[in-house]
């Protein structure tokens, strides 16, 4: 379980590896926000290519970052979702406020 940070086209890319549950979210959400503040990026893109499990704690994490970036005039979006994660986005209705992209590059271009 790990989280890595990259920057691309003025966006903070958050690369997650592992299962996203309450345990994981409690450990990473602060470091995501502090990375965004430190580096001065107002856009956050989650790269989920190495995530095959997410429960409602992940929804809370994404909505939390969405509110955080919105305050600073930026956006939060998600890329590289497995079918499982797409299903969670649909069931929760999250797809209505968070855009889903096939690749991180596509997501950064849409910013």
């Amino acid at each position: 379980m790990s989280v890595g940070f990259k920057t691309l086209n003025n966006c903070l890319i958050v690369e997650i590896d592992g299962e996203i549950d309450h345990h994981f979210v409690d450990n990473v959400k602060k470091s995501i926000d502090s990375q965004a503040v430190q580096k001065g990026y107002s856009n956050i893109i989650f790269d989920f290519k190495n995530v095959d499990f997410m429960d409602s704690a992940g929804i809370g994490m994404i909505i939390g970052r969405y509110k955080f970036t919105k305050k600073n005039g930026g956006i939060t979006s998600v890329a590289c979702l497995s079918d499982n994660l797409k299903r969670i986005m649909m069931v929760s209705g999250l797809y209505r406020i968070i855009k889903i992209y096939n690749t991180v590059e596509e997501a950064t271009k849409a910013v």
Binding site: D55, S56, A57, I59, G60, I63, I88, V91, S92
Partner: peptide, 15 residues
């Protein structure tokens, strides 16, 4: 305040 989404039961019901 803990960023709970309030969707736990909704997910249990749909799965």
């Amino acid at each position: 305040e803990q960023e709970r989404s309030g969707l736990g039961f909704t997910i249990m019901q749909s799965f």
